[in-house]
């Protein structure tokens, strides 16, 4: 059975139909790309999957749970992790503390055990620090752990968001334009990291405008245009789909 099922999802903002009757599904271990021109509704769809927004109609099922009815923190606890197109790094917190917040859902210490720093709390803190550092190393930011996150260059901010989300040990990871602002070398590095994450068993849905990156890394591609799904299939097929080419008219696929 599919891990994630988007079923006839529509989303209206006032008169604007940002998504129209979109359906597709995602299997465990897949890397799927969601592409489409600006304003196609990609981020809107991510917001529905991560519980930040509600579909106007239709459903998003994660296993048997309807994500469209759940809050973001519940979606996260179920195993949906995400990064943001417009960086939402916790500036002026350390890089490591950012990732530690990502570890939140795996911890238990409440406010009273924090007040009293009970032994259980201290053990958990040590475990959180270790796990967070390990996660940072996974994305190659291990040696920047104690810097202020606000000082990171754009590319590293994406990586930090990925690490922060990975720290919560998601089943599925949504990446919203992770390669934006990266040079070729950094993009190649990112592709490598994404592949490793996939190999660790995380299912990935990513939005990206960098077609080289998309074609290189994804098993399947879904194309949105003006809120409608216009194509779905393996990268090679998408690259030659006349409708997709029309939507991207003038752009080199």
């Amino acid at each position: 059975m599919a891990l994630l099922r988007v079923e006839s999802v529509s989303k209206h903002f006032g008169g604007l139909e940002a998504l129209k009757d979109v359906s597709f599904s995602l299997h465990e271990g897949q890397v799927k790309a969601l592409i489409g021109p600006n304003g196609a509704g990609k981020t809107t769809l991510f917001n529905l999957i991560s519980g930040i927004d509600r579909p106007t109609s239709g459903h998003v099922f994660f296993r048997d749970k309807d994500l469209g009815r759940l809050s973001p923190h519940v979606a996260s606890r179920l195993g949906v992790g995400r990064t943001f197109q417009h960086s939402k790094v916790f500036d002026d917190m350390s890089v490591l503390d950012n990732v530690k917040v990502g570890r939140y859902a795996r911890g238990h210490a409440g406010i009273f055990s924090a007040f009293l720093t009970m032994p259980r709390h201290r053990r958990e803190e040590t475990a959180v620090a270790d796990a967070s550092l390990r996660t940072l190393r996974r994305v190659g930011l291990g040696d920047r752990a104690h810097e202020s996150a606000g000082n990171l260059p754009v590319g590293d901010r994406h990586l930090l968001e990925i690490a922060r989300s990975l720290a919560s040990e998601p089943t599925i990871l949504l990446l919203d334009e992770p390669a934006a602002g990266l040079n070729n070398e950094e993009t190649a590095q990112l592709a490598e990291i994404v592949r490793r994450v996939r190999d660790d068993g995380v299912t990935i849905l990513l939005v990206e405008h960098d077609m080289g990156f998309v074609m290189d890394i994804s098993d399947e591609v879904v194309v949105l245009d003006y809120g409608k799904k216009i194509a779905e299939g393996p990268p090679l097929m998408i690259r030659n789909d006349p409708e997709v080419i029309k939507a991207y008219l003038g752009e080199d696929l």
Binding site: P72, S76, I111, A114, S165
Partner: peptide, 29 residues
């Protein structure tokens, strides 16, 4: 002082800076 240096303290600082991000990391903000 203990609270600041804890899971709950970090989650508060996180939600202060980017509430949506904190939510998406499992914090019931």
């Amino acid at each position: 002082l203990n609270l600041v240096d804890s899971r709950v303290g970090r989650s508060l600082r996180g939600l202060h800076r980017a509430e949506i991000a904190a939510m998406s990391l499992g914090v019931n903000t």
